[in-house]
Simulated scan of single mutants.
Amino acid sequence: MPWSMIRLGTKNALYFRANVVLSMLSVALQTVLLVTVWRAVYAGRGAVAGISEADAVSYAVIAMLVWHVALPWQLSSIPDRVREGTIATDLIRPVGVVGQSLLQSVGGTVGAIPGVVVGLAIALAMGGLTPPAGGVAFLGFVLTAALGWLIAALLNLAVSMVAFWTTDTRGSFYVYRAIASFASGALVPLWFIPSWLRPILDALPFGLQVFAPLQLWQGEAPLGGLWGVLAAQLGWLAAAAAIVALVTWRALRKVVINGG
């Protein structure tokens, strides 16, 4: 059953070939623009806030690719299934609603890999990608990026559960996506955030999804180092799981679907 749900998520992501091609083209265009724009920003400057041009360009590209493959640009299928009434079938399956959604998210991540491959190839061709600071840095990046993905998937699921109270989740999702995009460092590296705002963003889980893993990639020491990041991620993972459990418990007792 779990593998079936992962395959289903992958098939859904790859089923419409036009969408796959457009996604790859979008990643390619974003890669070119990021490399070009960040190099223009650094024109005539050796470093900004202590960050070199090469590191800033590489950060921007990898952050975009991590955001593309791992973080929630769209909600799970729960809102549509609640609106259509098919959620009733999901509730009697061996794997619960939460498990189904997470497994399909894994499949969706696998389906996003072609775009990442294109982005990496273009970044390498343009000289806009610096290698990780070392083997330990790379392993730290992979581990923390994976945990960041899981935190993002759980928070995404919690936002999706709003569908059990209202059949229109677009408003809550747009607010969540705007905050997560900015606070994670996916849009603007947190190096350049004003000092008065940085402590607020550091207190949120989003920086652990993009900024902290990329700091490890580049050989920087995030607050608390690798073990500090892992401890913070595990803490937020437990908190996100508790939030999802609470919301799910409440949601399944207040189902609003078309037709009754």
Rank of each mutant, 00 (worst) to 15 (best):
G148K: 11
V98Q: 06
Y59V: 01
T89L: 14
Y59R: 05
V82G: 01
V57M: 05
G44L: 05
R81K: 11
S77R: 05
G115N: 09
W149G: 08
I92Q: 07
T109G: 09
H68K: 12
S101D: 03
N156S: 15
W149S: 10
R83E: 05
A47M: 08
P114W: 14
V110L: 15
V66R: 01
N156I: 05
A158F: 13
A43C: 01
V159L: 13
G96W: 11
A123D: 04
V106L: 15
A133W: 15
P114Y: 13
P114T: 14
W67S: 11
E84H: 05
A158C: 13
L143E: 09
V98Y: 06
V118T: 07
I113S: 02
G148M: 11
I151T: 11
G111I: 02
T144W: 12
D55A: 05
I151Y: 12
T89H: 13
T144I: 10
A125C: 00
R93Q: 07
E84N: 05
P72A: 15
D55W: 03
V136H: 04
M161V: 04
G50C: 07
I78V: 12
G135M: 15
F138Q: 01
G111N: 08
T130Y: 00
A137L: 06
Y59K: 09
L139H: 03
L157Y: 15
A152V: 12
L155T: 02
F141E: 09
